[in-house]
Design a protein around this nucleic acid. Structure first.
Length: 268
DNA sequence: CGGCTTCAGCTA
DNA sequence: TAGCTGAAGCCG
């Protein structure tokens, strides 16, 4: 059983200046105007329950995924995809073309810049993965810094990459999946790279319509972190975000079997 | 066991 | 933007 307390007070304490500065710039109506239902289970995007997380948020739609961006953390709070089998096949026929760029739809005072990440020691880690993108347009969109978080190198390459591969494999088997990926900012010692807050954890929710079941990976943002698999309901409590609002509590407890991810032994 | 894939950073 | 570098899981 996990006993994380969702301590977002520290996040706000670390960023109070930015938070107050950007609050006025984010009308709540923007959230409605820019919803993109096709990326979400039953057309319903996640709902932020922890008010502290809601500061300076704005939804952004991309062709193959939708994000909720935070001007406080200068990252997304989630990135959501409807991942279909044929899309995965198309994506796997496309070579990678790195094109990291700041998100032009975001005001400069809220968005991450390439300079925030440069020589930081952290990877620019995709939330919605490049490897899921079926065409050049979607691929380029996935390289928006609005779809990135500062991620530990080894975590990204040796924990997250195999998880992403497992999700694509599962999507081909299940026919379709809904996938939501994002950061968590827990604890009292959050650090930052430039103006971007470094998440303490990353999560990835997978929901299979065919099995009517879901589950989530939840892993600390460091190398050699243990890979935890938890129910959607538990992740929602940890985050203070209702990720799959069209499901009832019982449905959120119904576990989808996720593939086992192998991990290198720790160096001891 | 070796090639393939996937995640990238850095430099010019 | 192109080119070079690198590690490790996956898979046949």
């Amino acid at each position: 059983m996990i006993k994380f307390r969702a301590v977002f007070a520290s996040l706000l304490a670390a960023c109070s200046l930015q938070a107050s500065a950007v609050l006025a710039a984010s009308p709540a109506s923007a959230a409605v105007a820019a919803s993109c239902p096709s990326h979400y289970l039953d057309g319903r995007p996640p709902e932020i329950r922890n008010p502290k997380l809601a500061a300076a948020t704005r939804p952004l739609c991309f062709s193959e995924f939708g994000v909720m961006h935070s001007g406080v953390t200068r990252t997304a709070l989630w990135s959501a995809e409807h991942l279909a089998a044929d899309q995965v096949v198309a994506a796997q026929g496309l070579d990678r073309d790195n094109a990291f760029h700041p998100e032009p739809r975001l005001p400069r005072g809220q968005r991450a810049e390439l300079s925030d990440y440069a020589r930081s020691g952290f990877d620019r880690g995709h939330l919605a993965p490049n490897g899921d993108m079926p065409d050049r347009t979607a691929q380029r969109e996935s390289f928006s810094l609005a779809n990135m978080v500062p991620q530990d190198r080894d975590h990204n390459r040796h924990i997250w990459a195999p998880i992403e591969g497992a999700v694509r494999k599962m999507a081909k088997k299940e026919g379709e999946l809904y996938v939501i990926t994002g950061p968590a900012f827990l604890g009292s010692s959050l650090r930052r790279v430039g103006n971007v807050i470094v998440p303490s954890h990353l999560y990835k929710v997978v929901y299979s319509p065919r099995q009517k079941a879901g589950a989530a990976w939840f892993v600390e943002n460091r190398s050699d972190a243990p890979i935890q698999v938890i129910p959607v309901a538990e992740l929602e409590r940890i985050l203070g975000i209702e990720l799959l609002p069209s499901l009832n509590q019982r449905q959120k407890e119904r576990m989808l079997a996720l593939p086992k991810i192998r991990q290198k032994k720790s160096r001891y």
